[in-house]
Design a protein around this nucleic acid. Structure first.
Length: 720
DNA sequence: TTGTTCCAGCTTTTT
DNA sequence: GCTGGAACAA
């Protein structure tokens, strides 16, 4: 057998990881060190050299995208199908296990997955039903509490009554929430993981079966696992130590949502015979970028220690630009991107990375103004759109009448004359008797406890669902969706919606039919499940970044978090200011600050060739002007690796002409950033200049008097 | 039922 | 200062 394609493209450390004997292995893989390659080749090695059957391979990732990439690369490398391998996300695999063992998991066969927005709606309803004040008990916070408990493996009954009023109230909702989910056959994301853990733990036969089946368990992004995920992995590998994890503690940026970097440290305790292999050679960035990133991350106390290096040369210095304000920052970045494109660079090789989504707006505006195509990551995804969720709600009710959130969602959408009053009545009955809304509705109709109008409307709705279910039983999946779209009245609703928003919604509904047509339910036979159930699960588990496959060459805008795992030739890390990055909320806590620093490290190591850092000396935040200090992370980069770009000194920059604010053609009495004195206000710094001649105004930040706009003609400023 | 006004909130995100 | 959701009036 020819194994050269498997081991030849690897460096020494990578090869050691790929060919290591089967035992607990921790691969500390720095940014750009070929982590996916190691995983892919490790699996290839097992298949081709160790003679492991594809059937016995388990590989877990966090995102569908990562899972897909791994599949593709294995197929590419070995030229064989990955169908029978279990490669997927934690949640996807958990879902699959629960489908197979629904009975042991005490779930109905038709259980459905609820996404976070469904979950929030449910909690809101519960809060209202319990007569709690939403402002005192924000549903978001309750949701967060419940998920945090589940991530730690704790159900309501596991939590001790500490007497704490807050916890007590949370528990009341948590309990009610659990009841409702059980009753409705609904499973949220955290529940998928928790439930699987419980099933495996409590059914020794099942556990043994899977322990024997999976000869090696592979995990990607191990630093992002939470408590319950790690517990699950430990169960599966108990006694065999066949756990192969790849991760980077320096890239742990999801602590705030339950990820435990400690899992990396604990791994070494739990698997005493483990081996650690560090991948430190970087194939992505220039030496300067890596050195700078190394220096920044070295400031963190809690880390395993690792230093990236490259043999590809120093490259260019890192550029630092101090913008006068956020507008100037946007001008600068867009101008540099234009220059990059003029020199033959691809727009899609340029990325603007920011700490918070709100920062994207100005960049979008400036890109739009210059006619530069761009793409903003994040935001609503396909299956999260309201019109899609409405259609899905009908489909869900067809397969499970007791799905309360779906019932609530569409019982009066499109409007069919069911007022809030009638729906309230239904809710009340359901709550009192602990039955689903559907059952409560049936009951109300039978006992004639509704006004005639509401009654007829409700009967109409129940019949609609029953009819749809009956009529579509024999149809193909996409025909079901099609029929639902029409008969539910959704199409009509959006057709009559004014503006062109309705147009888009119609297109999306059309696209949903298309998605159903393309839906590949290879699992259907194996799991003996209806195609519709699988499609609905697919919609919840893979929100669908359909826009991802638009190939237009455009500038990439995204948060630092979403940039993880990606790389770009040209990277702009913008808004490098205290209070923004690191964020205000993180500034008083060392652990959170270190996470911000890791985020900075992640951002810097995205850059292959050129890295720009920018900050603004003044910025509007929530409508208020602020004068932030440059981010501490800038100071943590050795100055010899930085080159400051000074607008004022650069006379021949084309951008200056386009940007009236920083025009250098204009004669100015003062320079930006200059220190000045005023008879009454004392000493200050020039922030902005506007107008010409007699109209010339300056915005000054006075030490004592604060920020003021002054007419230079009258102000009699003195240069200091 | 719809359009308007008011008011809180305001890091990061996948599943 | 802007946005989205909820409460309110017509």
């Amino acid at each position: 057998m020819d194994i050269t394609p498997i081991i030849d493209p690897l460096n020494d450390a990578q090869r050691e990881a790929v060919t290591a004997p089967n035992r607990a292995l921790l691969i500390l893989a720095g940014a750009g060190s070929g982590k996916t390659r190691v995983l892919v080749h490790r699996i290839a090695w097992q298949l081709r050299v160790e003679g492991v059957s594809p059937h016995s391979i388990l590989a877990v990732t966090f995102t569908n995208k990562a899972a897909r990439e791994m599949r593709n690369r294995i197929e590419e490398l070995l030229g064989l199908s990955t169908q029978t391998m279990w490669i997927g996300t934690f949640h996807g695999l958990a879902h699959r296990l629960l489908r197979r063992h629904a009975k042991q998991a005490k779930l109905p066969e038709t259980f459905q997955v609820m996404d976070s927005s469904d979950q929030l709606r449910v909690i809101k309803r519960l809060v209202a039903g319990l007569n709690l004040d939403e402002t005192k008990w924000p549903p978001k916070q309750i949701q967060w509490f419940i998920n945090a408990q589940k991530d730690e493996g704790k159900r309501a009954l596991h939590l001790p009554d500490t007497g704490d009023l807050f916890v007590r109230q949370m528990l009341v909702v948590y309990r009610a929430y659990e009841e409702l989910c059980d009753r409705s056959g609904l499973v949220d994301f955290a529940e998928l993981l928790l439930r699987v853990h419980e099933v495996l733990r409590d059914n020794p036969d099942l556990l043994t079966f899977y322990q024997q089946r999976f000869l090696q368990v592979h995990v990607d992004e191990f630093q992002d696992t939470n408590t319950i995920q790690y517990a699950w992995l430990r169960l599966l590998t108990e006694g065999k130590d066949n756990l192969f994890v790849v991760g980077d503690d320096d890239q742990s940026i999801y602590g705030w949502r339950g990820a435990r970097v400690e899992n990396i440290y604990n791994f070494q305790k739990h698997y005493p015979n483990h081996q650690v292999i560090k991948l430190e050679q970087n194939y992505r960035s220039t030496g300067n970028i890596l050195n700078a990133a190394n220096k920044v991350i070295a400031k963190n106390q809690a880390r395993m220690g690792k230093e990236l290096w490259t043999d590809s040369g120093e490259g260019e210095l890192i550029s630092l630009y101090a913008a006068f304000n956020e507008l100037d920052e946007a001008y600068f970045v867009v101008d540099r991107i234009k220059a990059w494109v003029n020199e033959g660079g691809l727009r899609s090789d340029a990325a603007i990375l920011y700490r918070s989504n709100a920062q994207s707006r100005l960049f979008e505006e400036k890109l739009m103004a210059t006619g530069t195509p761009y793409r903003v990551y994040g935001g609503l995804r396909f299956f999260e759109r309201a019109e899609i969720k409405n259609a899905l709600a009908y489909l869900r009710l067809m397969t499970n009448r007791h799905d309360d959130p779906s019932f609530e969602r569409v019982v009066n959408t499109p409007t069919r004359g069911l007022g809030a009053k009638a729906v309230d009545d239904i809710r009340l009955i359901a709550k009192d008797r602990g039955i689903s809304l559907w059952s409560a509705a049936t009951d109300l109709i039978e006992h004639n406890r509704l006004g005639p109008r509401s009654k007829n409307a409700l009967i109409g709705f129940l019949q609609l669902i029953d009819n749809l279910a009956a009529q579509t039983e024999e149809l193909a999946l996409f025909e079901k969706v099609q029929l639902v779209n029409e008969h539910s009245g959704l199409i009509n609703l959006y057709k009559t919606e004014k503006g062109d928003r309705g147009e888009e919604k119609l297109e999306n509904l059309e696209e949903l039919i298309n998605a159903a047509r393309l839906f590949d339910s290879e699992q259907a036979n194996e799991e003996n499940l209806s195609e519709l159930d699988l499609f609905l699960a697919h919609a919840a588990l893979e929100a669908g970044d359909m826009q991802g496959d638009e190939f237009e060459d455009c500038v990439q805008l995204m948060t630092l978090h979403s940039a993880k795992g990606l790389e770009f030739k040209l990277v702009f890390l913008v808004g490098m200011e205290e209070g923004l990055f690191p964020s205000q909320q993180s500034s008083d806590d060392i652990a959170r600050l270190e996470e911000e620093r890791r985020l900075c490290y992640v951002g810097m190591t995205r850059a292959m060739k050129q890295l720009y850092l920018t900050y603004a000396e003044s910025r509007r935040i929530y409508g208020k002007e602020s004068y932030p200090r440059p981010s501490r992370f800038i100071r943590e980069i050795p100055s010899e690796l930085l080159q400051e770009i000074r607008m004022r000194a650069q006379v021949s920059r084309p951008a200056a002409v386009e940007n009236p604010r920083i025009s250098i053609n204009q004669e100015r009495s003062f320079k930006l950033g200059q220190r000045v004195g005023h008879a009454k206000f004392g000493e200050g710094v020039v922030l902005q200049l506007e107008g010409e001649g007699a109209q010339e105004r300056a915005q000054i930040n006075f030490k004592q008097a604060g920020v003021k706009w002054l007419m230079l003609n009258y102000a009699q400023l003195e240069a200091l």
